[in-house]
């Protein structure tokens, strides 16, 4: 993947403004996860939008959110892509994260980019059926877990009586099909993959986002407050390029061009991407959507003292 990125940079360098090329580009290390949600970032890299802003992006893929946010605090990254719940939990602990851009959200109607799956014929169809049983989430206390738990509650189950088990996305379908768990909250493209490969044994029993919070937020880009205060124009340039990438992606929803871009950076086979449900790619972050997340978190045991959401949104995300 680093090869393709380097080639992409080389190919697009010619398009950049000469004045900006004259000075050494600002190197920004961004922590990402190899999922569909980061398509705008990769579009902006490939289309040369960052180069045009005098920014060189160095992506670092982490297998989960685990090293991203701590790496931001430690100064390993300047920007981190992460899910909203993990970010909020960091903020609750006093970490000075600021939202610099939206990344992924859900549409107002199904399909979601997440789904609850169960084994066919297991008789499990609702949160109520899951009481005393095991449900898989890729990580505890993240957005996938939160929406899954909210779905259990919404469909008549007592979320406290459902055991959540951490299973990485790549192993989730096997764990569910083999009976190690009774239900699992998947995120795309793992929903499409699971139904494609285990379709004879697994079925979708719920849309965890649209049944609990349609049109809500999923993930954002964050940076540290002191870095933003010291280098505001770097992040202005970053957000400008990223948002051009989001435009590029949004203009091509359902297009082959977008699927090829995603297949390129994620290595997910393109046939599978055709089956996958996509998130929305918002540029901004709103106080209202953050408030919804905090309210839901508080309801399901992640309450605490959170700052007013509006104070957490950097100017680049106030669009």
């Amino acid at each position: 993947m680093s090869i393709t990125r380097r080639i992409a940079l080389g190919a697009t360098a010619g398009l950049a403004a000469p004045a900006l090329l004259a000075q050494a580009p600002t190197r920004l290390r961004v922590s990402v996860i190899p999922v569909l949600d980061v398509a705008p970032l990769h579009a902006a890299i490939r289309e040369g939008y960052f180069t045009a802003e005098g920014i060189e992006i160095d992506t670092s893929t982490t297998a989960g959110g685990a090293t991203g946010l701590p790496g931001l605090v430690a100064g390993q990254f300047r920007v981190v892509f992460s899910n909203c719940v993990s970010i909020m939990l960091g903020i609750r602990e006093g970490l000075e994260f600021r939202f610099i851009s939206g990344a992924a959200g859900s549409g107002p109607v199904p399909p979601d980019s997440m789904a609850v799956l169960a084994r066919k014929g297991s008789g499990i169809a609702s949160g109520r059926d899951l009481e005393g049983k095991r449900m898989a989430s890729n990580t505890r206390n993240n957005i996938v877990w939160l929406r899954g738990i909210a779905w259990v509650d919404k469909t008549g189950g007592d979320w406290r009586r459902v055991t959540t088990v951490e299973v990485p996305f790549p192993q989730m379908a096997d764990a569910l099909a083999n009976g190690q768990v009774d239900a699992a909250v998947f995120s795309e493209p793992f929903v499409a993959a699971a139904l494609q490969t285990h379709g004879d044994r697994l079925e979708r029993i719920g849309w965890p986002i649209n049944e609990t919070a349609p049109g809500s937020t999923i993930a954002q880009y964050v940076a540290m407050a002191d870095d933003l205060a010291r280098n505001p124009e770097v992040f202005d340039r970053f957000a400008r390029a990223l948002h051009r990438g989001a435009d590029w992606v949004n203009e091509r929803r359902g297009d082959n061009a977008l699927l090829e871009l995603i297949a390129g950076f994620s290595r997910v086979p393109i046939e599978r991407l055709r089956q996958a449900a996509f998130t929305t790619y918002p540029k901004g972050v709103s106080a209202a959507e953050l408030t919804e997340v905090i309210t839901t978190m508080t309801r399901f045991g992640l309450g605490g003292r959170y700052p007013a959401p509006a104070t957490l949104i950097h100017r680049t995300a106030a669009v």
Binding site: M1, P34, P189, A193, T197, R267, P269
Partner: peptide, 8 residues
């Protein structure tokens, strides 16, 4: 890791 996430 990439290939795990890509389900390959």
């Amino acid at each position: 890791v990439m290939m795990q996430f890509a389900g390959r």
